[in-house]
Nucleic acid binder design. Structure first.
Lengths: 229, 229
DNA sequence: GCGGTACTGTCAGTTTTTGTCAGTAGTGTT
DNA sequence: AACACTACTGACAAAAACTGACAGTACCGC
């Protein structure tokens, strides 16, 4: 039995036990040493499985490693497909690919009849006049927002003045023809908006900013007089 | 990337192609030699996946393989949220609501940590200059497309001439500032496009049109010289 | 401290995996 | 029939990984 096969079997085993299963027992069932078992657990965790081991009890696989069956109405599927197509057409290539992958995963857990209606959906997103040229930076920006990391940018403002700033990015707004990054600007000590097509250069810093993203968003909304979406 | 990881990726790839995918292409995507690819296929088959390879065409994974896909990645969730927000902001109220409901359902199956990242997502869709005014008809149009039903419309063409037509609606295109319905026009006996803001009145007929939606779409694509999306 | 369980680091021997290359089976062509 | 072509398989050596043994660490309750 190859290792890859055994890892699947281990997942299966973990799912089939309702209560924590002790390591030595799992190892024995799989016919491997305890040492190898520990390594297998580590492999699975590294691949995204949240397996918890409680000393004295055993191991449990917390739900959320694999996608369970999902049920949607036809209209909800239409909405998901149309939305994903928009993302696939109008955003950076990484996000675009993720949109497609998400649909593939959803499709795989739908009952056959709904899967068909997902595949055959005929709501399309038309091409836009202003194609998205900016690319490489986008994934970094999203990454920084997610991880609440500071970024340093070279920015060309609307008066064609270039400046270098460190900002705390917390939101990205997708408009018809441009994208705007919202962040707290360390230079100006206030919230600022940056058109992504005017960001000349960008570097994600190691450091996280000292506030929570959600909180920055709320303050920004208050400052801008926007009610929550 | 470990072999077990790669095997999962191969399954995902196979699921993502609607049509048979040639072996050399899959091998290249995975970054492995063709020989190794054949071995991977053999492994999966041996583990219970029903993968069929047709010489000259490629490989297909028949649905029903017991292994569900992996949980969404953070980026996939970002894509789904952003897409749904776009739908929620830019389409008719029924579809908009469905987009939100779909997200709720997805949220329900996420592990706590991912659910959090879904809730806290800060990619937003900005408001558009030309708000969507048309409303009630939209759900009917989508309904007619889904059910492959004929519709009768009062249409005001670009020369401001009003006409009454019965059409076979098969697709809806969402452009930045307008939506276009594509259908076969019984009156003109050809494919026609209708701007939804110029449809004065609409009635969904009982009768289904005598062709399959998918087939109409393919013919229309051929007629318009558009390759498949 | 002490004894116990759960787990990790290291390492050498072993196994698996991999790409290359040669070869086969099946198909369609001339 | 000979031929070209594609899809696939067998063999093999080099490279990569996996494995179990064993020693060692971390943490617990007492």
């Amino acid at each position: 039995m190859s290792r890859s096969e055994r890892l699947l079997k281990l997942i299966h085993l973990l799912r089939s036990y309702r209560y924590p299963a002790p390591g030595y027992q799992l190892a024995e069932t799989l016919g491997i040493s305890l040492r190898t078992f520990y390594r297998d657990i580590a492999s699975l965790q590294q691949q995204g499985a949240s397996i918890e081991g409680e000393p004295g009890l055993g191991y449990v696989l917390k739900p959320g490693f694999m996608l369970p069956p999902l049920m949607f109405t036809e209209e909800e599927l239409e909405a998901l497909v149309l939305g994903s197509r928009w993302v696939a057409n109008r955003t950076d290539s990484e996000l675009s690919e993720s949109a497609i992958n998400a649909l593939v995963k959803i499709s795989a857990v739908l009952p056959a009849e709904l899967r068909n209606s997902l595949d055959e959906n005929t709501l399309f997103v038309g091409p836009t006049k202003q194609p998205v040229t900016e690319s490489a930076e986008f994934a970094s920006i999203r990454q920084a927002i997610r991880a609440e990391q500071k970024i340093t940018i070279h920015y060309l403002d609307l008066k064609e003045q270039e400046s270098i700033r460190t900002i705390w990015p917390f939101a990205l707004g997708y408009f018809d023809n441009l994208r705007v990054l919202a962040g707290w600007c360390e230079l100006r000590q206030s919230f600022r908006h940056f058109r992504t097509d005017r960001i000349l250069q960008l570097e994600v810093c190691e450091a996280c900013y000292p506030r929570r993203r959600r909180q920055l968003l709320n303050e920004w909304r208050k400052a801008e007089g926007i009610s929550s979406q």
